[in-house]
Nucleic acid binder design. Structure first.
Lengths: 191, 191
DNA sequence: ATGATTTCTTGAACTAGTTCAAGAAAAGTA
DNA sequence: TACTTTTCTTGAACTAGTTCAAGAAATCAT
């Protein structure tokens, strides 16, 4: 049974009696240690991961051989590569635990059957995808409207606990500048 | 009846007999002239717009009082602000026709009733939202990995007809740099 | 056609952020 | 405790892209 997940679903849509049992039939728990991969670039993404405890990142390797972080996921967020998941083609992204992590997995090869048994999930995933889409579009706008320093300050104030949780160089990557630059921003603030 | 839209839906999910008639009950056609607004910043967004013919942009006004384009939509794309649409709070974005445009509107106050009659639409919107989400996340990665000049070249090669269709300064805004800089890129290319 | 508006161009001075390289600090492991 | 790995800092030289200002070219409306 997955109380965190069912609670999350019920925030967005209703579920029939017995939904928990159906979910339990189709979902799995997966635990992984810090640095383990849920997906490696080049593989086909075969699951959608709902984090119960821990933190993961999705990233890509650039031409210059540096990591570029696309997305973080913490408790009660889903993480996957929807391109690869739906097209079943190799992913350009890797998904890696950056803390010891426990998550619920919806594997792609169970998804259609589960959605048939529990059609409310179409609605749930529609709504959370639309929210995530609006957020991703807003992120682009935000990036273009603000300097790196402003983006860092905003992120720090919005997610203070999270800033403590991840290495600074990952934050820099997610915010779209170099770790050196982030270090200089911090020096300026504290100095 | 909305042949373009039903064809689009059927690319992603099946529809029952009679779906066209139900859609016709719940959807409206709206035409607007170049420069008309489908949504003005400050208003609550009350519809989701599927473009049949024409082109719209969604944009925001920055602190410096310049426009920042978030999104374009051409034939067979949906455009809306999902944040405002779902929360029914005022939008920060404006949506404006940049050509004379004809679109199918799903108004927010019809949406739930329509989805109840035609639950396949939950699936349709789930799938297209997930695709759009993956694209938006990839866009951020792309922005961080490439220079303005590279982004312009890539866009030009990916959507050559579209580059002809919109003013250069809107393209510059969408790609995240100034119109002057775009002009300089073009000068360099041509000669 | 003509004037008004919208869009595009060019140059010079400037700034936010990068790159490279080296070392310091912190955290993990034995 | 000490050793290794990971993460963070600092400075100097550099570059991609901005800003401002002015004018040129297109396009639109009458």
């Amino acid at each position: 049974m997955f109380p965190e997940l069912t609670a999350h679903i019920r925030k967005f849509t209703s579920l029939p009696e017995g939904a928990e049992a159906i979910l339990a039939d189709y979902l799995e728990v997966r635990t992984c240690r810090k640095k383990d991969f849920l997906l490696k670039a080049g593989q086909v993404c075969n699951g959608n991961y709902f984090i119960i405890k821990g933190c993961c990142r999705s990233f890509m390797i650039t031409e210059k051989d540096t990591e570029l972080i696309n997305h973080f996921a913490i408790e009660y967020w889903w993480i996957t590569d929807y391109f690869s998941l739906e097209s079943q083609r190799p992913s350009e992204y890797s998904i890696q635990a950056i803390e010891d992590t426990e998550c619920v997995v919806l594997y792609r090869n169970c998804q259609d059957a589960l959605f048939e048994k529990l059609p409310e999930l179409e609605r749930y995933f529609r709504i959370i995808s639309q929210k995530a889409l609006a957020a991703a579009l807003q992120r682009v706008t935000y990036i273009f409207m603000h300097s790196g320093e402003e983006r860092y300050e905003h992120f720090r104030q919005s997610f203070p606990e999270f800033v403590q949780r991840v290495p600074q160089y990952m934050l820099a990557s997610y915010l779209g500048f170099t770790p050196e630059f982030l270090s200089k921003i911090r020096a300026k603030r504290n100095g």
